[in-house]
Design a protein around this nucleic acid. Structure first.
Lengths: 255, 255
DNA sequence: GAGTGGTCTAGACCACACG
DNA sequence: GTGTGGTCTAGACCACTCT
């Protein structure tokens, strides 16, 4: 939960943000009410105005409050933003919903990266990658097929994991592989033979696809994944604003 | 384009951000190179370190650079982030791709809002809404069906527009309706009879759906829209990171 | 005109990465 | 140890909203 994340961190502005987030979510300022002025909050928390502004910037980015010159901030709604790790880890996500995550490794191969993979993972020609195909289940029901391509450094670790291990991000973290940034692309794709077999759907039937490239804190790509969900099982939500927009709509890429 | 947006704004940090964005995109720091230190940039631009940090925060949110304590920022890639208005206006978006946007108003009705609409648009029971159904085309080819629900204040303006007007956001802006924040939800849905007829696809065939609720700078909802795209015509991209994540994945809502 | 958030400055100290 | 970004402070002025 985003609140815990804030509290866990040591910085003052995160604590202020966590507190305000809780106050907003619990309705302390009303449905579409106004927040106290920055100065008032600064005094209340015993911090400088700059620190309050840092806290408020977090809430702004989450879509919890508006902000414009001349008037107090207005409550937009109760945010339902997930932590970054919930977003990257199927296991973590499933558990946060109270579902039991499951999975099965269908295949793991090691082979030279093709052109697209080299570009995504920024690899030299001839570099070998590890490619996994996994079926993901929620409480026993198949919901998603995941194809992930790992660069050698990460793939070697993944290859050593037991085939029945549920979470992959957790063991990777323990081995020093950190996730920091991700680019996601969402579209619709037709099920191929493997998808159809694993998800028990017809070949050619539509799946919601999420392509994701994740990098570590140094900017080095650590995985490139294609997740294909059965329709009706999942949706993606994004908040954006004039002030900050990390979302874009574009003509669909090939592949 | 994001760069123009930055330059147009008067603030110093936006100008710095625009300049850095251009430098990064043109490869001045290399493919995965390092940026100068904040202090060096501050001196170079003749501004304080705080201002440089505001500029860099913009690039960070766009996924252009990493940032972590202890090391210089690293170039992640060339951003392809759209301006907020490109994201909300089909017309603006189409033109930015060099395509000719078209559209046809299929129907416009005025009726009492149902429960879901009242909640989305935060309306009192019994309030009337304006509901439009539009077919959207790119260079003559149908790509999307758009169902939009407007609250009275906005709907009255929309109802007065000529049926053949291409852009709706532009005339609305001229009448003082401003867009500031939006929540998007993306999933897959089966085409109903209207969708099938307008998009020339089979009933039940899959469409990429974007549900969107937009609010003005005061936090008042101004539209609630459901856009349904033919598969293969469009994709959505999002960047996020440990530092800021406005994206979430969740079990699909009903409806 | 009073109050508010947006921008900018100058300086301080700290936590962390890296050689 | 040195350099870097992260956090925090105190103060200033401006642009804007609202009454």
């Amino acid at each position: 939960m985003a609140l815990d994340q804030d509290r866990a961190a040591g910085s003052l502005y995160r604590k202020v943000a966590a507190d305000l987030r809780e106050a907003i979510t619990s309705g302390s300022f009303g449905e579409a009410g106004r927040l106290p002025a920055e100065g008032a909050l600064a005094e209340q928390y015993g911090v400088s105005r700059g620190t309050v502004r840092q806290a408020l910037a977090l809430l702004r980015a989450d879509g919890l409050v508006t902000s414009r010159r001349g008037t107090r901030r207005v409550v937009l709604g109760s945010a339902r933003v997930q932590s970054f790790s919930e977003l990257l880890s199927f296991t973590h996500w499933a558990r946060s919903m109270g579902e039991e995550p499951g999975g099965r490794l269908e295949s793991l191969v090691r082979r030279p990266a093709d052109a697209a993979e080299r570009e995504q993972l920024r690899l030299e020609p001839g570099t070998e990658v590890y490619v996994t195909l996994r079926l993901r289940t929620l409480s026993g029901t198949p919901v998603m097929v995941e194809r992930t391509v790992y660069p050698p450094r990460v793939g070697e670790l993944v290859a050593r994991l037991p085939a029945d291990v549920v979470s992959h991000t957790e063991p990777l973290r323990e081995h020093g592989i950190l996730f920091s940034d991700a680019d996601h692309t969402i579209d619709v794709v037709a099920a191929n033979a493997d998808d159809a077999r694993l998800l028990s759907c017809r070949r050619g039937s539509p799946l919601l696809r999420e392509k994701r490239r994740t990098t570590d804190p140094t900017g080095t790509p650590v995985e490139w994944s294609q997740d294909r969900y059965l329709p009706g099982t999942v949706a993606f939500s994004i908040h954006n604003s004039l002030a900050s927009s990390a979302l874009s709509r574009h003509a669909r890429d090939e592949d």
